[in-house]
Write a protein that binds this DNA or RNA. Structure first.
Length: 637
DNA sequence: ATAGGGTTAG
């Protein structure tokens, strides 16, 4: 705004200044200071109102104003305000200023207007020499997933001899951070070593992250070990990298190491740790993290709240998960997804569905993952109509592409409801290649509804995709034995032997008086075995008297006793044991692998109708360390 | 001015 304010306006401005804030200046520098402070504190909305206020008071923005105003626009993703600012920049004549130029490019990139950014870059001859402008545009290309353009620009920089510095690398390396980009990543690593830029801690951190995102955990760790003076971000990069790769035990070990090195964790560290705590059930660490969060005042961090919701939901404490969720001032899709998934995991599909609808009403747009959590909740709770509607809305209403993960939920949903042919037709209609989970869901449904022919088709496909997943062999073998097809049973056995696959029996745990008791499927070694099986018999009789729908189960169980391929479900043993050893009105904590067995919820629902106990389920999908039947109750949930 | 770490399902 170089237009000189009229005399009248100047007078009125003066008056206003006297009335409201006696210190309100018409020179730009105090405004700039205020604007910079706000922008640096990430108070972008406030920063932009200061900019507007500044204009209304007749102060002229200059090269020290625009970078911060543009940064705020970029952060809030306001392309319209951004291009207005661009006009102001041109009018003020400070567009060739490097500060302003890079801010403009960066703003357009962050608002996804990459072509406008390129235009700014190309129109200024000045920018062709400046490394900073190249860096801004290059990181913008990567941000907008245009990796080819980014590498072309990188090539041009090398060709023209433009300075390549640490920031150039920081922009480019994330383009190699994905499965399949590993070799490109190692090339970038080599470039950094040759140019000596690896000594820059930021660059090294970035490379560690890149390797972890490629799934090359060993390379990441090796580089991590080579960094002489690790910073907090270095530790965080490694910890979250392990967490992303599902290496929960490594996460906890590294956290311990970090503490012995005297590095203080921050909110980001805790996010990585919490997801591992949730998967492992490492209670002592969970409690410690909880205290640390309270002590450090990280309570308001939305990422941390999401991680806490997930942890409590997985560990069976839905009440606490819900309390955190309800307290969040701004709930993102991730927060909703976490709580919906939590209810879904515990068989409370109705609540999950209500929450999903509430999310949409509150104006949060569901993403692909949110649909996965609501669809899986529907399939666990048998809400087939609801699920089908959501599946249709996914594409029609929200323009999302259904992936194999959505199809596997739908196949599970239809399959459980007995619509096996519909499920098969759905698979055939898929535009993306079905993965193991899709065929596995069909196989699981065939097992429930005893359809041997279709099961054989599904089995062939799933084994082709996941040849070492024992669960599928067991499913088919059990189906064969139910159908009294002994030849089939032995055929599957031979396949397993040939592929050197050892069958791990399914297992469940019950927590009782601070001790965790492990039950294997078909286990008869427990000292209360006789009582447990008696209790299960009694329960069956009660079910029959009440509804009589469990006859099939009874038949199945009589076979279980004799056939070698079948075994009494571990969670039934665990539940019976819990009933035997608790008094009415208490809570029984059942820890089991939620991924494999969905019938568990049904059984628990029926049991809780006739006995005065509350069941809490904890997900043990990743309880690897329990495999040998050992666990220490002090350290684990 | 440009940059590095974070949540979600199966």
């Amino acid at each position: 705004m170089t237009v000189k304010p009229s005399q009248n306006r100047r007078i009125s401005t003066r008056l206003l200044q006297l009335k409201t804030a006696p210190t309100t200046p018409t020179t730009s520098s105090p405004w700039n200071t205020r604007l910079r402070e706000l922008a640096n504190q990430s108070l972008f909305t406030e920063a932009l109102s200061v900019y507007r206020e500044m204009l209304s008071f007749g102060a002229s923005p200059n090269a020290f104003t625009f970078p911060f105003a543009l940064k705020s626009c970029a952060a809030l993703s306001l392309p319209f305000v951004g291009s207005q600012l661009h006009c102001h920049v041109i009018r003020s004549g400070c567009d060739p200023e490097p500060f302003v130029l890079t801010s403009l490019i960066s703003m357009y990139c962050k608002c996804a207007l990459i072509d406008s950014a390129r235009k700014v870059f190309d129109e200024n001859t000045q920018s062709m020499k400046l490394s900073v402008c190249y860096n801004a545009l290059l990181s913008g290309y990567v941000l907008n997933l245009r990796y080819c353009d980014a590498f072309l620009l990188f090539g041009k920089m090398r060709e023209l001899g433009v300075e390549i510095n640490a920031v150039t690398m920081l922009g480019l390396i994330p383009a190699c951070a994905g499965p399949g980009y590993f070799w490109l990543g190692t090339f970038m690593h080599c470039c950094c070593v040759k140019s000596g830029l690896v000594v820059d801690l930021s660059v090294a951190n970035c490379l560690v992250t890149m390797y972890m995102k490629c799934g090359s955990v060993d390379y990441g760790r090796r580089l991590f070990n080579e960094i002489p003076e690790k910073g907090l971000i270095t530790w965080n990069a490694m910890i979250s990298g392990y967490a992303q790769n599902g290496l929960a035990t490594h996460v906890l070990a590294l956290y311990r190491e970090m503490k012995t090195c005297g590095v203080l964790p921050d909110a980001v560290t805790f996010v990585g740790i919490l997801s591992s705590v949730a998967h492992l059930g490492a209670r002592s660490v969970g409690c410690e993290v909880e205290q640390q969060i309270a002590a450090n005042g990280f309570g308001r961090n939305p990422f941390l709240s999401n991680a806490l919701i997930n942890m409590y939901a997985r560990c069976g404490n839905l009440k606490k998960a819900r309390a955190i969720f309800d307290c969040m001032p701004v709930k993102s899709v991730v927060s909703w997804t976490a709580i919906i998934g939590g209810y879904g995991m515990h068989g409370q599909g109705e609540v999950a569905v209500q929450l999903f609808d509430e999310m949409i009403r509150s104006g949060v747009r569901p993403d692909s993952t949110a649909f996965v959590s609501v669809l899986s909740a529907c399939s666990h709770a048998g809400l087939s109509d609801k699920g089908s509607n959501y599946f249709a809305a996914l594409e029609k209403k929200y323009g999302l592409q259904p992936g194999p993960e959505h199809y596997s939920c739908m196949v599970d949903l239809l399959g459980r409801a007995g619509q096996l042919n519909e499920a098969w037709e759905l698979i055939k209609s898929m535009r993306v290649k079905p993965d193991g989970a899709v065929w596995g869901a069909l196989l699981g449904a065939c097992k429930i509804h005893k359809n041997v022919e279709l099961a054989e088709i599904a089995f062939e496909k799933v084994i082709d995709l996941e040849p070492t997943n024992i669960g599928y062999y067991v499913l088919l073998s059990n189906l064969y034995s139910e159908a009294k097809n002994l030849e089939g049973v032995s055929r599957v056995r031979v396949m397993m032997r040939e592929r050197n696959l050892k069958k791990d029996p399914g297992c469940s745990y019950v927590e009782l008086n601070g001790r965790v008791h492990l039950f294997l499927a078909g286990d008869r070694s427990h000292h209360q075995t006789v009582e447990i099986y008696k209790m299960l018999d009694e329960l069956e009789n009660l079910f029959e008297e009440l509804g009589g729908s469990n006859r099939i189960d009874r038949e199945k169980r009589s076979e279980e006793k004799h056939s070698t391929g079948m075994a009494m479900h571990s969670e039934k043993l665990a539940i019976a044991f819990g009933l035997l050893n608790t008094s009415p009105g208490t809570e029984i904590v059942v820890i089991k692998n939620l991924r494999i067995c969905g019938d568990c919820h049904l059984f628990m629902k029926m049991v809780s109708k006739i006995v005065d106990r509350q069941f809490v389920i904890r997900d043990a999908t990743r309880f690897h360390h329990f495999k040998n039947g050992f666990c220490s109750c002090k350290d684990y949930w």
